[in-house]
Structure formats: structure tokens, C-alpha cells
Amino acid sequence: MSILGNILWFVCGGLLSGLSWLAAGCLWCITIIGIPIGLQCFKFAGLAFFPFGREVVYGGGTVSLIANIIWLIVSGIPMAVGNAAIGVVCCITIIGIPFGRQFFKIAKLALLPFGAVVR
């Protein structure tokens, strides 16, 4: 079932979403200071291409906590709100509920990306 979900997701917007995250990651990695943010964009890109059947495991230490606080203030909240809003819209219909759940997964990762591992 996850293969079918990933194919539908990829065709219906996952390709565009993943490519935009890859482009953002490449732009962030131009500077040395932006490399950690660029790496998080690459993490989002991997999940944006094929989210079904993948799990996000949260962990990390003090450095991850500090980086997550900075990330949350700079760009985490708008990303999470946007993905959560799209998830709510998808959940209006029964057919859209699996897609909405994937948007909620991405929204949670948008809040705390540092220290999280996508498996």
C-alpha cells in the first residue's frame, strides 16, 4: 500500500515539492553558516519525495535543542503551519486522509528537524 501511496504522492505534487526542497538546500549550502540548514532541507526533500512507509525518529542532545529553537523562530513555525493547513484540507475527504497524515508528519518534522532521523 505504501508503494501505491508514494506513486500517487509523487505524481500529485511530491516531485515538485521535493525538487523545491533540493533547490533550497543547494542554495543554503552555498555559505558555510547555511550548511546545517541546507542539510535539513535535504532531509525534507527525501521525505517530500516519498513519505509513505517512512518514519521520523526524534532524538538529539543539547546542540540539537539549541538548533531547533533557532530553527523554530526563523522558519519552523511558518513551515509547520502551512503543512498542517494543507493536511487539514486533505482530511476533509475520506480519500485525502492518508495524504493529510503525511502532511502532518512533515509539519512535525518542520518544527523539530535537528536531531530527527528519517527512516
Rank of each mutant, 00 (worst) to 15 (best):
Y58K: 01
G100C: 11
V89S: 11
L47N: 00
N68Q: 04
G5R: 08
I37R: 04
L112C: 13
N68T: 08
G76Y: 00
Q40R: 15
F104H: 01
E55Q: 15
I33K: 02
P78I: 07
L16D: 14
F44V: 00
W28T: 07
F42L: 15
L112I: 13
L39M: 15
L16W: 12
W71K: 01
Q102H: 07
Q40N: 11
G82T: 06
I7R: 14
V88K: 14
A85C: 00
P98Q: 08
S17M: 03
I66Q: 09
G76N: 02
W28M: 13
A45Q: 11
V81G: 02
G82S: 09
S64R: 05
M1S: 14
F50I: 12
Y58S: 05
S2V: 13
F52V: 05
P36R: 00
C41G: 02
E55F: 06
I33G: 09
P98C: 12
A48G: 11
C26A: 15
I77Q: 03
I106G: 01
W71T: 03
I3D: 12
I30T: 10
V89H: 03
P98K: 05
F103I: 01
F50P: 01
G82W: 04
A23K: 09
I86H: 01
F49T: 01
L109E: 04
P113L: 04
F50S: 09
L16N: 06
P113E: 01
A84I: 07
P98E: 08
W28A: 15
V63L: 13
Y58V: 08
I32E: 06
I94W: 10
F42N: 03
F99M: 14
N6H: 12
L19C: 03
L19P: 00
M1Y: 11
I97M: 14
I92D: 12
I32K: 00
T62Q: 07
I3F: 12
I73V: 15
V57A: 15
I86Q: 02
V89C: 13
I94G: 07
L8A: 15
L19T: 01
L19W: 02
W9I: 02
G100E: 10
L19S: 02
R54L: 08
S75D: 07
I33M: 02
F49G: 02
G46Q: 15
F104S: 06
G76T: 00
I97G: 13
G87E: 01
V63F: 09
L19M: 08
Q102I: 04
S64Y: 01
L27M: 11
Q102N: 10
A80P: 06
E55V: 15
A48I: 04
T93M: 11
G61H: 03
A23T: 12
P51L: 05
A80Q: 03
G60A: 04
G25F: 00
I70G: 06
I70S: 02
S17Y: 00
P78L: 03
K105D: 07
P98L: 09
R101V: 14
F52D: 02
L19V: 01
G100I: 09
A45F: 09
C91A: 11
F44I: 08
L16S: 15
Q102A: 13
G13T: 01
